[in-house]
Amino acid sequence: MNILETQNIEKKFANHTALDDVSISIPENSIYGLLGPNGAGKTTLIRIINRITAPDKGTILFKGRPLQPEDVHNIGYLPEERGLYKKMKVGEQALYLAQLKGLSKREALKRLKVWFEKFEIQAWWDKKIEELSKGMAQKVQFITTILHEPELLIFDEPFSGFDPINANMLKNEILELKKKGATIIFSTHNMGSVEEICDHITLINNSKNILEGQIDAIRKEYKSNIYEISFNGNTQKLASSLNSDYEILEDTKINGYNAVKVKLHKQTNDNKLLSLIIPVVEIISFNEVIPNMNDIFIKVVNENKN
């Protein structure tokens, strides 16, 4: 079941189209990556999901029915442009934001206590945000985003601006939240983090959704029949054993052993390749090269340009 679906969303600003017929489906309890270059329309889509702006056309379904104003209580949002009131005390501020998300004061206090203990930051309660370091403020920010235990969490470029320690904490907490049943939307152009934690992705470029699906399926779809072999023996000998169905792309070393990247043409397969080289060299490793998201990202965006 999909927790959120956008159907044919269109949003135009005065001189450009931010979103053009964008439809995505976010499966429940997944970590969904919203990818795309800067200015592609990711933030606009997120703002529409958060009911900050309204689409010109299209509908949004939350748990199968049109998104209602009260549904924002079920969404936690960490925007790319984020911060807190600098002059307000940590505790007061967290309480205020929690109440805006529909929690009662008592419930908010109870939950804040738990989180402050977990992060060992009880001593900050009466401090002003401006007295905290940036990393400390980020912890408070994270707590205020998830305190109302939303079913859907939206993080816009969550790792930008977080220091490595907090970024790691954030990653672990996100995985933890998923375990507890939450669905997470991730907007980023940092592909490394996408591969690590996302299950599904959609790639938005130039206000259009150009690629959507499960991350493993997409990577498989974009693999190009290249194998990497490291071996003990002579590269020349190996090369001479291959016919025109095979093409050596790269001649390198892996862990001190000679290695090559071989592209296979359609008529052949990896077993045939193995049978050809086993007689001439001693094989140390044999892997299919699966493209990483970064490569796919660049490839698809460039294809789309032409």
Binding site: N50, R51, I52, V72, I75, Y77, L78, P79, E81, R82, G83, L84, Y85, K86, L97, L100, K101, T144, T145
Partner: peptide
């Protein structure tokens, strides 16, 4: 302070 977007996601 960049808090405004956080608030308008609630109100």
């Amino acid at each position: 302070n960049r808090i405004v977007e956080i608030i308008v996601s609630s109100v």
